[in-house]
Write a protein that binds this DNA or RNA. Sequence first.
DNA 1: CACACCGTTCAATACGAATTGAACGAAGTA
DNA 2: TACTTCGTTCAATTCGTATTGAACGGTGTG
Lengths: 179, 179
Amino acid sequence: MRTDGDEVYPALAVSLSLSVASKTRQELIETGGNLCRRVGLPRSLGQIYGLLFLSNKPLTLEDIAAGLDISKASASVGTRQLASWGAVRQVWVPGSRRDYFEAIPEVAALLRKAYRDIVKPRLEAVQGRVEHLRTLLTEEREKGVIEAEEFEFCRSRLQILARFQKSLLSFAPWVDRFL
Amino acid sequence: MRTDGDEVYPALAVSLSLSVASKTRQELIETGGNLCRRVGLPRSLGQIYGLLFLSNKPLTLEDIAAGLDISKASASVGTRQLASWGAVRQVWVPGSRRDYFEAIPEVAALLRKAYRDIVKPRLEAVQGRVEHLRTLLTEEREKGVIEAEEFEFCRSRLQILARFQKSLLSFAPWVDRFL
DNA sequence: CACACCGTTCAATACGAATTGAACGAAGTA
DNA sequence: TACTTCGTTCAATTCGTATTGAACGGTGTG
């Protein structure tokens, strides 16, 4: 962790209450980070979730920053992002006025939610987009921008797309049933 | 397109045989690019596929570079990548010694292939990873790095993960049936 | 055999996005 | 009211990686 203000001890996560850096935790954090990076998400998200996922007790922002050696800022925005996705919960600890976080371990539920809240809406957006393209194409045909043959070709191609994402949308119930 | 060698005409895709830049094509290219970027892939891939997808006839690397205003190099690596995924096919055109490309429009089949060749193997890799973590954890327990309580906690958490991706893997047949 | 044409490669660059440090505000504490 | 303690914000920086330009090799052509 990089403290703001002056340094105390050179990067020793001394205040961290959990058994510092077991290899297991370390590796889960790493794979979590990689997993995120691969999907185009900030690696810190996966790391934070991984850290919390193997944490006995809720952790503070400082714990997280220290445990992952990232800045307090990153920890802040990261936890907020995760919380907005329901992957992390902010818990109240009576004595302290810090924010404590814990992972929500129901991974399957998280994935289901992700599908409903992110993938599916986006698919529907794409659906609208394809429709738009189809009307656009016929317009251009009427204006004579495109010749008949090419028009027909494009039309069939767009139809393929339309059919495709309709079948993708029909996935939704199956996803729900499975997870 | 930025030609190597000297310029001829200021960026007019004059040699491009398809009806230059219909709005429809334009937009599909754009959404294809965005789609890729969102998933963490180079946008040029989506653009190339989009261009070819609405193309009557096979296109050369130069056509692609010109049509998308990207470098010949990008077009080259992009088409190769797409071809390696089976999203694009290199066709032989008798008269010319250039490489011609056309899109493979069976999007559903492409997705199925992507699942089998990319997602599923990766899931299996993750499975191995989780197993590794579990043995690692018990090792650490035996060495006394972790106390009993925390060990039990982590163990249950890892088990959640294991169950989760096992159910993910059981998806495979369903994916095949659906697309 | 020289020459033009094409696709590939690779080091350099450009670009987007994640991460950071410092400043700030809110809320407790003495 | 001065002084910590925390979390947030935002401009600046860093970092990964997509993209490019130039050089190269290979293959037909005159």
